[in-house]
């Protein structure tokens, strides 16, 4: 495993902030509410105060990429949401690769083209918002890695060698510049898995995307998404993956919800549980299972919890 990172986490997050603005993810709070809770609980245990705000709306990026929003609306929404965070003098932490990717890209467009910035700020000025670009955008996975020593110190439920196959998700890695790792062969999640007592599994199609982005899960599910995911699960099963982790609730939907459909179509028996990395960290840090919302998952976690020694409900 490559121990060196392209961007040192200590350079990316020099000081551990006392509080962060947690950017609500629609999918992370509706499809898998346990993800939202796990992120909040984990940050709390690691000593970071979580600030959220009901005035924050959807990042509006997903439907933009599905061709169903004009870029103008997403640029204005980004300016509005980020101006809201700037009002609190905090940095923005997302727990969805989508929110991360869209906020980064849209704020990049705003901050590198005065015409777009003026257009967006003019639109949101009526409610007292003005975006300047002071809040930095992070994904909580960067914070997990920055605080890896704190996590390792506080593990109360080690993973007992559980074989974990990670899924990074494209919209973090595709950012390409300024991300922690080499997008072509990232390993920082595996390092975290090892620190928590798990066995990271490098399955062959580890970097294959979830296939659900830009709505192809709705429009091209049978045509391309399923054959695509089939390859991924064949390779994960061959490598003996017990549990798959994601850092994007959208990827989680694709990887978790599609398994019964793949089983039906290809006469297979895939049953690899898929949860958010934050849920796994929260679990090892001792957050009660009932607080992690695993009942939202399609593929049950019973076997995984048995292996870690935490039956459901304990």
């Amino acid at each position: 495993m490559q121990g060196k990172r392209v961007v040192k986490p200590e350079n990316k997050i020099p000081e551990i902030p006392q509080s962060v603005f947690l950017f609500r993810s629609c999918t992370g709070s509706l499809e898998y509410p346990g993800t939202e809770n796990a992120v909040r609980e984990t940050l709390r245990i690691l000593g970071i105060e979580v600030v959220m705000d009901p005035d924050q709306t959807c990042c509006s990026g997903y439907l933009l990429t599905c061709s169903a929003h004009k870029p103008e609306v997403s640029l204005a929404v980004t300016a509005r949401n980020l101006a809201l965070v700037e009002g609190k003098n905090l940095d923005t932490y997302t727990f969805c690769n989508g929110c991360y990717g869209y906020l980064s890209e849209l704020s990049h467009i705003l901050l590198h083209n005065p015409a777009y910035l003026n257009m967006a700020n003019d639109l949101v000025a009526q409610w007292g918002y003005h975006y300047e670009g002071r809040t930095k955008i992070f994904h909580v996975q960067e914070m997990w890695y920055r605080l890896r020593d704190r996590i390792a110190d506080q593990v109360v439920r080690p993973l007992n060698g559980l074989k974990v196959g990670v899924h990074y998700g494209c919209h973090y890695l595709a950012k390409q510049y300024g991300i922690l790792d080499d997008g072509g062969y990232p390993t920082f999640h595996e390092e975290l898995i090892e620190l928590m007592g798990g066995t990271p599994v490098f399955y062959k199609e580890r970097q294959l995307c979830c296939g659900y982005a830009v709505g192809r899960g709705f429009t091209h599910r049978e045509e391309t998404v399923q054959p695509h995911l089939y390859k991924k699960f064949i390779s994960a099963r061959e490598a003996g993956v017990d549990l798959m982790t994601t850092v994007c609730p959208g990827c989680n939907v694709a990887l978790d919800r599609e398994q019964p459909n793949l089983n039906k179509r290809y006469s297979e028996d895939f049953k690899i549980a898929v949860i958010d990395l934050a849920q796994l960290i929260a679990l090892t840090l001792g957050v009660p299972v009932q607080k992690l919302g695993f009942e939202a998952n399609t593929v049950p976690l019973d076997d995984v919890l048995k292996k870690i020694g935490t039956e459901k409900g304990s």
Binding site: R24, S29, L30, P33, G34, E36, M52, D55, Q56, G293
Partner: peptide, 21 residues
Amino acid sequence: IRSSIGLSPWPEISDRAREQY
């Protein structure tokens, strides 16, 4: 599910946010 894990039943989003969106 949200209530059972200790979250607000519905993601907290204000009427003002919805109107502005």
